Amino acid sequence: MSVGFSISYLSSNCHMWLLLSLALFHLCVSDQKSHDALCMEGERQALIRFKHDLIDEADRLASWAGEKSDCCKWVGIVCNNITGHVREIHLTGPYIGDAVTYKEMKELLKQRLGGHLSSSLLELKQLEYLDLSCNDFNWIQIPGFIGSLGKLRCLNLSESNFGEMIPPQIV
């Protein structure tokens, strides 16, 4: 009788552990997106100010709008999924090769961003990657404040028509 009792007890215990394991697994994998962190409000505002100083003829940054929108879902923005801090900005413009017609070149040039780089980027304390390559900043100087982006590991400003002098804060 004691052997039957212990087998029955072990069997129900195994079922309980199996159900618990399945429940935990379901919590971990179900609707992962709903558990992602939203962007930080201060960083969203900083990106809005950054956008305000840019010239965007093609409206490439149309998703960068709305008082309640999640900046982590905006075009070109990558956030840390746990903290919600902006980690990367990818705003590469189109590359204009040699084999394009005048009409194609004109259209591609409209796709390029221009204007000025706002110091509001300094509010993105976790920014590690900034790519503004292949845009047209009309030979303005690279702002020295970029050297103060403490976590920045990758900066790509190539083919973006910045002034020739690189500020000493960046070097």
Rank of each mutant, 00 (worst) to 15 (best):
C28G: 14
H52L: 10
I170Y: 02
I48A: 11
L124Q: 00
N135W: 02
H90D: 12
N80W: 03
R49F: 09
D53Q: 15
L121E: 01
R49V: 13
S148Y: 05
L19R: 14
K68W: 06
K110M: 13
F25T: 15
I82K: 15
T92I: 12
S133G: 10
V78S: 13
L47P: 00
V75E: 14
M16L: 09
S160P: 08
L24H: 08
M165E: 12
V86P: 00
L155S: 07
K125D: 07
R87V: 11
L152G: 07
I142G: 00
V86F: 02
N138D: 12
Q32H: 08
Q126M: 08
T83L: 11
G115F: 01
L108D: 02
L113M: 15
Q126G: 01
I77F: 00
C39N: 01
D136W: 07
N156V: 05
S69R: 02
N13Y: 07
E57I: 12
C71A: 03
P94N: 13
V3K: 13
L27H: 15
I140R: 04
T83Q: 10
L124S: 01
L109K: 15
Y95D: 14
A58K: 02
S118V: 07
K106S: 15
G147Q: 02
E57Y: 07
L157E: 03
G97P: 06
P143W: 05
G163A: 13
L108E: 06
P94Y: 03
F5K: 15
S11L: 10
I77K: 00
C28K: 12
M105H: 13
L149D: 02
H85Q: 13
K33D: 12
K125G: 04
K68Q: 15
M1Q: 12
F137K: 07
R44T: 07
L91T: 00
K103R: 13
A37V: 08
L157C: 06
I166K: 03
S30K: 12
L127G: 01
H35Y: 05
E88T: 03
E164T: 12
F50H: 00
S34N: 14
I89P: 00
N161R: 14
I55L: 13
G93H: 03
E123C: 10
